[in-house]
Design a protein around this nucleic acid. Structure first.
Lengths: 134, 134
DNA sequence: TTGAAATAGTTAGCTGCCCTAACTAACATA
DNA sequence: TATGTTAGTTAGGGCAGCTAACTATTTCAA
């Protein structure tokens, strides 16, 4: 059961990743960006923790997002070592547009399922979240 | 619903990723290997379709699995272009060992679910696979 | 029958993500 | 003030995904 769940999750995410690609921004970048858009300003280290990734990895992700003008670095008032990152207006706009596209594509397929099938998925979601430790 | 499903898949995968790392074989390789172990002999192209990946990508995954002695190539009887791939005894053993490890890691959480909750997840899995395009 | 098109894989080269190790800069403290 | 800690960056490596271009084989139609 763990194996089948794992497989299903991998395949679902691969499908969604293809749609994310259409936005021109990869899934890890979108994910970090969404933390900033919905959670507000964060340090590189905090972002790394939230995204379950090492600091150097997040450092690169932020650098890429900055190059694309989607985020901006802000100095920390008291501690000059700290790099605060916040989403730019362009970053917010891109994220909202991407979410709409992704949700639209998946929602269209969900709409093709029967009501009973939708109920089956809906009742499983909170259980999977529980298994995932959330 | 699409958002919640996406989120659940991401969280589940991050949880399971740690366990998979312990097997010394990456998630994409384990996933392809599991198709062979549970589904039997497949061509490279079939594997690529099932895993939603391009043929060159699967070609490399199979090459790596072969180097590790986890799979073996078998000639197709009628068509010399085709490469059939099957799991070796070592591949089957590794996959089953990985399964045990994952099950062990999730055991505490799974034990907290009722039989009805487990049924709910099991019935949702094939539907998610359908949404993923399989 | 033979030459063109289709099919199955491989190889090469690119990008992106993830890691560890080693570094700089800044802060905290004894 | 010297030492250790903390925040990030840089360097370098591995793996996974892609497209383009290639080989080998098979299919099919003129």
């Amino acid at each position: 059961m763990a194996d089948r769940l794992h497989s299903a999750a991998i395949h679902l995410l691969r499908r969604l990743r293809r749609e994310d690609d259409a936005s021109g921004v990869s899934a890890p970048r979108l994910s970090a960006l969404s933390v900033l858009v919905f959670g507000g300003v964060r340090t590189i280290g905090d972002l790394a923790k939230v995204e379950q990734v090492r600091v150097p990895t997040m450092s690169r992700v932020v650098a890429a997002l900055e190059t694309d003008g989607l985020v901006r670095r802000v100095a920390h008032a008291a501690d000059k070592r700290v790099v605060l990152v916040e989403a730019s207006a362009a970053g917010k706009a891109l994220l909202h547009a991407g979410q709409r596209r992704r949700v639209a594509a998946l929602a269209a397929d969900i709409a093709k399922l029967s009501a009973a099938e939708r109920r089956a998925i809906l009742s499983a979601i909170p259980l999977v979240e529980k298994l995932a430790g959330r």
